[in-house]
């Protein structure tokens, strides 16, 4: 196949997977752009930040950092903590990103929650190049996000109907992807460990500080039960 046809085919296969994110990211991106404008920044800021940081929750946090005192070390540490879950994504994708050539660096750069969850679980049809498929999933998601932030930053609030609650589209997406992964797993220990320990940590520690303890607990549990879990993974 010609390179051009390989890319077209991968784009066509990738696009349907990104449609929920088109809705969610345009909405959240616009909200982010409007938020930055309201905080007194020109549209250049949301556009540049959505392009370079490309991690939704961290971008909202950064607005507050920009309004406070100058503390780049603190900003760096906060970004590490807020985005620590990406470490899990990276370890999960070590194998899947292999053999994707130079595209790999963009795949890693653009590995937000949404791109990770699709690239990690999507059944890529036979005859579609894996690397280009994941590349287009990532690229389309970033275009939606930057596009939304640009619209919000440039035009402010111009919504025609009440969009209150539209942000739930992201939760719905993650629930569906979680279920798809659940159908694929023969055993559900890992999913239950991930959800159960996170839930417990959230209940005990509250929303602001639960994620690092939850990650540590998941990692410790998976390490401690490596032998039985590996054995369980083997028997079909």
């Amino acid at each position: 196949m010609q390179p051009k046809r390989i890319r077209t085919r991968a784009l066509a296969a990738a696009f349907p997977h990104t449609v929920p994110i088109l809705a969610g990211f345009l909405f959240l991106g616009i909200a982010y752009g409007v938020y930055m404008r309201a905080a007194g920044f020109s549209a250049v800021y949301p556009i540049a930040m959505s392009m370079t940081i490309f991690a939704g929750s961290m971008e909202f946090v950064t607005v507050n950092l920009l309004l406070g005192g100058f503390d780049p070390v603190g900003a760096f540490g906060l970004a590490l903590m807020v985005n620590a879950r990406h470490l899990f994504y990276g370890i999960s994708m070590l194998d899947r990103f292999k053999g994707t050539g130079a595209k790999k660096w963009y795949l890693i750069f653009g590995m937000c929650d949404e791109s990770f969850s699709i690239n990690c679980t999507a059944d890529i049809p036979a005859g579609v190049d894996k690397g280009w498929f994941m590349f287009f999933v990532t690229l389309l998601n970033q275009i939606y996000w930057v596009g939304g932030a640009a619209l919000g930053g440039l035009f402010g609030s111009f919504v025609l109907f009440s969009t209150e609650g539209l942000e739930f589209v992201m939760t719905a997406l993650f629930v569906v992807i979680f279920l798809e992964q659940w159908f694929k797993d023969k055993r559900h220990y890992s999913a239950l460990i991930g959800m159960g320990l996170s839930g417990i940590c959230l209940l005990i520690l509250g929303g602001d500080g639960f994620i690092l303890p939850a990650m540590l607990a998941i990692w410790a549990c998976l390490t401690l039960f490596r032998k039985p879990l590996e054995k369980a993974g083997e028997d079909v």
């Binding site: 992201m170 559900h188 998976l222």
Partner: peptide
């Protein structure tokens, strides 16, 4: 890749997606 890390790579996706669902409720 060390065997331990490959093991983590095979069990972490489901756990990370579970974490992500809970994260939405934070």
């Amino acid at each position: 890749t060390p065997g331990y890390v490959r093991y983590l790579g095979s069990v972490l996706p489901s756990a990370a997606l579970g974490l992500l669902v809970v994260y939405c409720f934070k």
